[in-house]
């Protein structure tokens, strides 16, 4: 009997753990890409349309802001169940990686949008005024001033969002989306195989640590000089 078997008596298929890791990473990668694709423009919209900002539109801001707050206030596990019909319409299944991505994105994009909005508000008003004085259009200000100046904060927001998404994917495991959360729930919780629980928790910790490290590096490299 080798050491692994003695330490983790219930785990007979390490390949299953490996596949669960890959599933988690796929869910994370897919949902993260879409979260950024939706949350970044949404954050810019929130920033620009807020009162006293570059394009104040009180009604649009109020509606967007309310929607974002509603989506952020629903606990993810409930959001996931509530969204099941929508998920089915969008990707044709409620289960697996594909079934997990719509609720993950709908849960994380508003969160990320708020982080983007906050990061943009950190950009000095004077820098924006200077670019207006240079004849920059709104789009030029967004593209060449706001986003580059806020990129440190935006990358930090991405890191926070990615880590939140790791938590969401684990919760998704409880209702059939697969991945490490599914493993921990089925074997660790329902079948009392605590060695499964231990391994998945350790793997999740390692994953979060890695994300934080990579995020910090990127922020240090591209943040403020």
């Amino acid at each position: 009997m080798n050491l692994l078997q003695r330490l983790f008596p219930n785990i007979d298929d390490w390949g299953e753990i490996g596949r669960a890791c890959v599933d988690t990473l796929l869910m994370l990668g897919g949902s993260m890409a879409l979260t950024v694709a939706i949350g970044l423009p949404l954050g810019v919209l929130l920033y620009l349309t807020a009162p006293n900002q570059l394009r104040p539109m009180p009604k649009l801001y109020a509606v967007t802001s309310l929607l974002v707050n509603i989506l952020r206030s629903v606990p993810f596990i409930i959001l996931m169940i509530v969204l099941m019909p929508v998920t089915y319409v969008l990707v044709g299944t409620k289960l697996g990686i594909r079934g997990a991505i719509p609720p993950l994105v709908i849960g994380a994009a508003p969160f990320f949008a708020r982080l983007v909005e906050t990061a943009l508000r950190e950009v000095q008003q004077g820098v924006i005024e200077a670019s207006q004085a240079m004849g920059a259009s709104l789009w030029q200000i967004v593209r060449h001033v706001l986003l580059p100046e806020a990129r440190g904060g935006i990358f930090a927001g991405m890191t926070v969002t990615a880590i939140a998404l790791v938590g969401y994917t684990a919760m998704g495991g409880a209702i059939g989306s697969g991945g490490l959360g599914d493993l921990a729930y089925r074997y660790g919780y329902l079948s009392y195989k605590s060695d499964y629980m231990l391994v998945t928790v350790v793997l999740l910790i390692v994953l979060v640590q890695l994300l934080q490290m990579i995020g910090d590096r990127i922020v240090a490299r591209f943040g403020r000089h």
Partner: peptide
């Protein structure tokens, strides 16, 4: 674009 402007706090792009 034909009117330059400078500021008390410089307002340069930090990035």
């Amino acid at each position: 674009r034909r009117i330059g402007m400078i500021f008390q706090h410089f307002n340069l792009l930090a990035s």
